[in-house]
């Protein structure tokens, strides 16, 4: 090991983060080279001393209470929405009301109440189906902006991939280890969309997986994160600033493909991707 190499590894050695072989090599070098040994001793003493003396900013009193209050405010705001979330549990009462209808016919009473109940259930079902659609467009546009920005950034900053590999068995474990979910990774070389690698990204307030595929000279970023349970939505196509975005959802995941390839290419990409998914 040369002195230059030893100096490069010094911080890793100081932090105990080298593998055993590198550790041994640098230790041997420090035994043999007095200059490096002295440099290491000064450096480590200094770094330890600085580390200990660096001011630690504990949370001020009151911040904990502020946070707890804001969390309670958050669920208080949610509760009106939580009514519509409970709609599925209203269906049993619809069935029940049919039974009581029969009884009502038998006993010839309470028609008005049934009509009112049916109207409420109907209104709730309509609201339940419409509410997400009403909320969506703005949210989608915002997400689309984020997606395009992420796509452009990945191409510009020379940070297309964190793990560059066309082997799905390399990319998948890498991503699994870094995320709180395990995205499906498939190579689509045989279909004309070779896998280039994977990357961590941050979208919609959460870490997401970005799978990078190539189509001729163009790149496709496929962003993947877990779908909310029970969320069903039709495919979405958005064209913006010359980029194509294609969105779909399967039982487990949200997918957003972003690229400058044509809409047809992106549709084809989605089809071959779905075809290659392991059967579950």
């Amino acid at each position: 090991m040369t002195c230059d190499e030893a100096i490069k590894l010094m911080d890793g050695y100081l932090d105990g983060e080298l593998d055993p072989i590198a550790n041994q090599t640098i230790e041997q070098h420090l035994r043999e080279c007095q200059k490096c040994d002295e440099a290491y001793k000064t450096h480590s003493a200094l770094i330890r001393s600085i580390g200990k003396a660096t001011p630690y900013y504990k949370a001020p009193s009151g911040l904990r209470e502020r946070i707890q209050a804001s969390l309670r405010e958050e669920i208080a705001e949610r509760s009106p929405r939580s009514v519509s979330r409970n709609i599925p549990s209203l269906f049993p009462s619809l069935i029940q009301s049919k039974q009581s209808e029969r009884r009502a016919v038998l006993f010839g009473t309470q028609w008005n109440w049934l009509a009112l109940a049916a109207a409420i259930v109907l209104a709730a079902i309509i609201a339940f189906n419409l509410a997400p659609r009403l909320r969506r467009p703005g949210a989608d546009q915002f997400l689309a902006t984020q997606l395009i920005a992420s796509h452009v950034r990945s191409l510009m900053a020379n940070h297309l991939t964190d793990v560059a590999s066309s082997d799905q068995h390399t990319v998948k474990p890498w991503l699994d280890a870094k995320l709180d979910f395990a995205p499906v990774v498939v190579d689509l070389s045989s279909e004309g969309f070779p896998l280039v690698g994977g990357r961590l990204d941050y979208l919609d307030n959460r870490p997401v997986a970005a799978l990078v595929y190539q189509r001729r000279k163009h790149f496709i970023n496929l962003f993947v994160w877990p779908a909310e349970s029970g969320s069903v939505s039709a495919d979405k196509r958005i064209t913006r600033q010359g980029y194509q975005l294609l969105h779909w959802v399967d039982s487990d995941f949200n997918y957003w493909a972003v690229s400058d390839v044509s809409d047809n290419d992106l549709q084809a990409f989605k089809q071959v991707f779905e075809k290659q998914l392991p059967r579950r």
């Binding site: 900013y57 502020r66 946070i67």
Partner: peptide
């Protein structure tokens, strides 16, 4: 700024807490 950001971060974390299994 630090206090505001921490409060905001806790709120964001709470909203995506369902996705935290680690």
């Amino acid at each position: 700024d630090a206090q505001d950001v921490v409060q905001e971060a806790y709120l964001r974390a709470f909203k995506s807490f369902a996705g935290f299994h680690g």
